[in-house]
Design a protein around this nucleic acid. Structure first.
Lengths: 339, 339
DNA sequence: CTGAAAGCGCTAACAG
DNA sequence: CTGTTAGCGCTTTCAG
């Protein structure tokens, strides 16, 4: 065995032309079953591996969909990517995944890298981007889908929800249950734009309810870890001990806060109510279970994937930009006295 | 603006040859700084995007490293991928990630898909593969690294540890602290090969200690969720109430077991000791904190990434296969009466 | 340091 | 249903 066999080698050995071999490796092409089976068998014997790089260049179709997420290790984004991958896989498309680490500058760099691979569509998490990143995406002349947000200035398609509105659901739930002195635990707003949106939503909802929105505990850059959630709760209990309820930017932080209460013998929800965001697995299992918001990550991925598959297949109208709102839902549980 | 500009367009506009433009987009090529700056500026004005597909075909270097992991949403694998990505990124390589869903048949399919993209190296999680997958990887004539395991028949390089030996650390820790009736909570062994290795390691260690290794609670296919961990603990408390300690196949399941004890008023560690695997964030934050094994996922990713970067750069010896053992470590905490 | 010619492996477009 | 011709956009190779 010398160099890697190409279609030419398969063609020679199978006694057909290269073009026929090419057809044997595609699903739609018109070719007799007998010929296809024969060619495939010969290819297997030779250890032939189809060269997608050459195929992509000639056909000007990469089969890639570039996807950026803030973090790989986050159940919400992972669920979206899983659903998205499933939909795209069914359409013969492959996800090219990049992680921004909650950093717009890194997102810009990443998008530049990904676009070199000639993706057929681009899915980004969030609606905040650097100007250069916006320009690159617009110039790319491919469908762009922003997710997990409802951007003010959409680049193209949108599959998401308003993070601010989601927080209102939480504040409304807490005020309905009689909580007044409500605090917010979040990350450094300079980085996590979705987290900042949630904080703004919290503040706005508190103001509308005529409550003091100034109980804000900000920790380091996102994601806010369980440990940071615990530390934030410790700070809160030390400095604002009359706080009645806490909303955390996400469930892991909320769980951390819960553990701090457990360590200090602060009863949840009797002495302190706690709510999170994301409906992570832990929020349903912890004792007590955590009230949270379900943003339906799988639905987001399904919708985005379906949209892209339709557009690339030419099925979609593609008249302007699609806006698919996936409405988040309150999940009321014991940590706020519900359930 | 018509079609997407190519190097030819940039070359014409910059008054140089295509070759010079090509050089302007690489770091090593010999070209004057003035020319490079000029070309880059022209390219920016034109909105030129380097076409990696064409570059790959001609140079026969894709810049891809294919990586398979069982699940995206798992802190351990995510940490390995993050570290790996960091190392490879520094070497100008891009990760092409695929998820096997803990399924060897899916792994086989995925590897076939990934190899068509002409990756320069392949990193797989685990040392168990279908025969066809093994053959594909061997025929690919690229460096293969198996991780998170110490395979009996390595395909090439290995960066990992013995899952069985890791369980011995846990059993030794528990017996040292006086626990005798120790149970194991794990997933359906037909699927999760690493989980099955851990179960075997548990059984072997129990036998060596002269203890009964038959307290096994197997739940569904992996990953074992928190909820399944809780259900398994419930079953255990109902059917084998004299059990003194539990080892779970991974931390989430261990945490689920812990919550079931909390719901039932079973004291941990006084009435029941619990240990997990993976040193996930939750094991350090839960109340009580969970004893676990740290498999050093970041170290695995760093080592695998460094190895590949060295090999592809031609720095590595590449005489045969490298074996890098990353020894896992016991993290003793309150859930087994330690810490 | 810069340029001209050739071709990577495959498929679009057409012809039969 | 199968074959022929040309060429995707870049880089290797060689020459200046």
């Amino acid at each position: 065995m010398n160099a890697k066999p190409t279609m030419k080698d398969v063609a020679r050995r199978a006694g057909v032309s290269v073009m026929t071999v090419s057809r044997a490796f595609r699903s739609d092409a018109s070719i007799s079953d007998a010929t296809r089976d024969h060619i495939r068998k010969v290819a297997d014997e030779l250890g032939y591996v189809f060269d997608a790089v050459a195929s992509n260049l000639r056909s000007q179709r990469s089969g890639f969909v570039a996807v950026t997420i803030p973090s790989i290790n986050n159940a919400n984004f992972a669920d979206t990517v899983a659903a998205l991958t499933g939909r795209l896989d069914a359409a013969g498309l492959q996800v090219l995944l990049g992680r921004t680490n909650y950093d717009m500058a890194e997102e810009e760099r990443l998008i530049g890298q990904l676009l070199r691979r000639q993706p057929e569509a681009l899915v980004v998490t969030g609606g905040h981007h650097t100007d250069r990143a916006r320009r690159m995406m617009q110039n790319a002349a491919i469908p762009v889908v922003e997710t997990w947000d409802l951007p003010c200035r959409p680049l193209g398609h949108v599959v998401g929800f308003s993070n601010a509105v989601a927080m209102r659901l939480l504040v409304a739930h807490l005020t309905r249950r009689g909580y007044r002195r409500i605090a917010f635990i979040g990350g450094d707003s300079a980085y996590d734009t979705r987290g900042a949106d949630r904080r703004r939503g919290f503040v706005a909802a508190m103001e509308e309810a005529g409550l003091d929105p100034s109980r804000l505990v900000m920790v380091g850059p996102p994601p806010v870890s369980m440990r940071e959630g615990a530390a934030a709760m410790a700070r809160l209990l030390d400095t604002l001990p009359d706080t009645e309820a806490v909303v955390a930017v996400a469930d892991p932080a909320a769980f951390g806060a819960l553990t701090e209460c457990a360590r200090r013998g602060v009863g949840v929800p009797d002495d302190m109510a706690i709510a999170g965001f994301g409906n992570f697995e832990i929020s349903g299992v912890s004792v007590p279970a955590l009230t949270t918001i379900d943003p339906f990550p799988t639905r987001i991925g399904d919708q985005a994937g379906g949209l892209i598959a339709d557009i690339l297949r030419g099925t979609a109208t593609e008249n302007g930009a699609t806006l698919i709102e996936v409405a988040p839902q309150l999940v009321a549980r014991a940590s706020t006295g519900a359930g």
